[in-house]
Design a protein around this nucleic acid. Structure first.
Length: 330
DNA sequence: AGACGTTGAGAATGAGGAAA
DNA sequence: TTTCCTCATTCTCAACGTCT
């Protein structure tokens, strides 16, 4: 450990390391022979001095986590000792290894979280995100997922141990960090209904409100019945939200849907009872119609293209084209 | 005497709800 | 989005009891 260059006044007189040093010096110089004899000089309670002297008994794997050994207080030693006694040293060391915390130095608070197993959550969330830490750190902090990943990365790296500290460091509002983490913790079945870029704060907040209102189980039941953005192109976040919200139409309104010709060659008219509802799905409907048209146009254009440039290419090569590309008999 | 555990008061800090 | 407020948690400091 490198010696501290801080002014003495910035070193808490509760510092276990400092207390242990002073106590040992006093012992060596014959100033006192017992802990009680040192209390008035060191200005600490007997309990704190006792804990301070136990600092060196903590395993190196734990001590190595601290960014600043001088900052370790009796409270910190006490919590660690209590956790080790309660959960077992094997469990605690296992948590440290699993959290991946050994690669970095951490604040007192962060170490307590790691020792108590609270930091494992961040490690898990980070693994689930499946992203390279370098990429996470480089991404713009716009989408909830990006902010959540960055938060968990910071917790794992020991950069911060709270939403507030993370928010301050990243220049993001504290509330956004907290909401982003909550959104990221929504079940996959719900999150995966949306393209990543469509799961914005606005959408995520409505999902969180829905989860509070319905409960997780009901939300999952509904999510299973909803088509995702991947299932059908053109679906909007608003469509999915309204379906999760069970703003369904009555079967009777749905029975009569007709498409007929409008005025001129360029118009089709869709008739139904609840046009407002169908209007919300215009994006999905348009995409579906475009898909149908595109298939026909692509076939025709490709055939024309092949005919036009057929002489340039080897005719045998053209003959090997799949039959689907063959012009339909007219 | 010393180690260890428990409890409690009060300050500091963090999180989340509500309103502007 | 920001600010204010409340509640919960963490931390410091102190006191006390039990056991060896």
């Amino acid at each position: 450990m490198k010696p501290s260059k801080r002014p003495y006044r910035l070193i808490s007189r509760r510092s276990c390391l400092r207390l242990a040093q002073l106590y040992q010096e006093g012992l060596n110089e014959g100033k006192w022979k017992t802990q009680l004899g040192a209390l008035s000089t060191l200005r600490v309670s007997q309990g704190d001095l006792s804990l301070a002297l136990q600092l060196h008994e903590l395993p190196d794997e734990i001590l190595d986590l601290f960014d600043d050994l001088i900052g370790i207080s009796s409270h910190t030693v006490r919590v660690i000792r209590h956790t080790v006694i309660h959960d077992g040293i094997k469990t605690v060391l296992g948590r440290i290894r699993q959290s991946g915390a050994t690669n970095a130095k951490h604040s007192n608070k962060a170490v307590l979280k790691i020792v108590k197993g609270h930091a494992l959550n961040s490690k898990t969330m980070l693994r689930w995100s499946g992203q390279d830490p370098v990429k996470i750190a480089a991404r713009a902090l716009d989408l909830p997922k990006n902010i959540s990943d960055r938060y968990h990365l910071g917790v794992t790296n020991g950069e911060w141990a709270s939403f507030s500290a993370c928010a301050k460091a990243l220049g993001v509002s504290r509330r956004n960090v907290s909401v982003a983490v909550s959104i990221r913790e929504l079940p996959d079945a719900v999150r995966h209904l949306f393209y990543e870029t469509d799961l914005t704060f606005a959408v995520g907040k409505r999902l969180l409100a829905l989860k509070d209102e319905l409960g997780l189980d009901e939300m999952l039941v509904r999510a299973r019945c909803v088509e995702s953005m991947f299932d059908a192109s053109g679906r909007t976040a608003a469509n999915i939200l309204s379906e999760l919200n069970a703003e369904n139409i009555r079967p009777s309104t749905f029975t009569r849907v007709r498409i007929r010709k409008g005025r001129g060659r360029n118009r089709l008219v869709i008739e139904c009872k609840d046009s407002e509802l169908l209007w919300r799905y215009r994006n999905e409907i348009e995409k579906s119609i475009t898909k149908v048209l595109k298939k026909r146009i692509t076939d025709a254009e490709l055939v024309q293209f092949l005919r036009q440039f057929g002489s340039i290419f080897d005719k045998a090569h053209l003959a090997r084209l799949p039959s689907t590309f063959a012009p339909r008999p007219s």
